[in-house]
């Protein structure tokens, strides 16, 4: 790295002569050392998964959860510095609650991504703070049902500003990924952390971004997610697989963010291991 020794990388919010903020780039390095996280946007919901590296034999198995519920319909997973991730989650929960207080309706996934993108970006602006050492994947299912507002009279205007457009639907599954710079995009399939390259390559093989929308169902996506994390995993190290999902109101989680049932997760892991072994034999 040619930047080292020039002094432009010693404080946050400092531009180098060629317009880079090195501290943000270094924060990305912290993310790249963390366990792989992925998110998949499916036909009927969103699946989130993370590879948790087992750093000590003395850790209580399956006790330390990494995927958090931010609101009923929102899940967040992250790679990088875990305490930073917990801070991010707390802020996201505050945002979701404040939104409900103000607007009497759950926050849309896109709005949460926007708020949290803004929050992360603010930590790149000042020398008095450092950027977040995480990349977060936000998954959510926005309800398609019309939610009446407290004290609402009638159904609102039928046309015009704020009115209803015939045939237009809203809601559905959404997936966003937010980087330490505050930059965020919507994704069909997202991956971050150490194994992101391999995970991305696998995600690209899935039918997620076709013109008819994603073809994959959540149950298929759970199996793919497990397989992808096994592919992206560095064999020498032991790891735990944590997976959650969010379906619509008519799906298995009834619009809420839940952990994938144990039986399904174990089946997905069994298939993932089998696929790994078959690959080894080739």
């Amino acid at each position: 790295m040619t930047s080292i020794g020039t002094g432009y990388d010693l404080a946050n919010s400092i531009f180098s002569p060629d317009g880079r903020n090195f501290q943000v780039e270094y924060a990305v390095k912290a993310v790249e050392n963390g366990g792989t996280s992925i998110g998949i946007r499916c036909k009927d919901g969103v699946v989130l998964a993370v590879e948790k590296l087992v750093t000590s034999k003395l850790l209580k198995p399956n006790a330390n959860k990494r995927i958090a519920t931010v609101d009923r319909h929102l899940g967040v997973v992250y790679s990088g510095m875990i305490p930073d991730g917990r801070h991010f989650i707390e802020r996201a929960r505050d945002e979701a609650r404040a939104w409900r207080d103000t607007f009497k309706t759950p926050i849309a996934t896109a709005d949460l991504a926007s708020r949290m993108g803004g929050y992360m970006q603010a930590y790149t602006l000042y020398q008095s703070v450092r950027p977040f050492g995480i990349t977060a994947i936000v998954g959510g299912f926005d309800s398609a049902a019309e939610t009446p507002v407290d004290g609402e009279v009638g159904n609102g205007p039928a046309c015009g500003a704020g009115g209803k457009v015939a045939g237009k639907t809203h809601g559905g599954p959404f997936l966003y990924m937010i980087e330490p710079s505050g930059l965020y995009w919507g994704y069909y399939g997202a991956a971050t952390g150490k194994g992101r390259q391999a995970a991305k390559a696998e995600l690209e093989k899935l039918d997620l971004g076709g013109p008819g929308g994603p073809a994959l169902t959540m149950e298929e996506a759970v199996k793919e997610a497990a397989r992808i994390l096994y592919v992206a995993h560095d064999d020498d190290k032991e790891f735990e697989l944590e997976m959650t999902w969010i379906s619509g109101a008519d799906g298995p989680t009834k619009g809420a963010h839940h952990e994938v049932p144990k039986a399904l997760r174990e089946e997905a892991e069994r298939l993932a291991k089998q696929a790994q072994e078959e690959k080894m034999e080739e």
Binding site: S3, F22, Y26, A27, K29, A30, R130, P131, G133
Partner: peptide, 17 residues
Amino acid sequence: NNYDNDSVTFSPQGRIF
């Protein structure tokens, strides 16, 4: 080591000394 003076500076490897 220039990167270990405070807790708001990442090292080029993404560590906080």
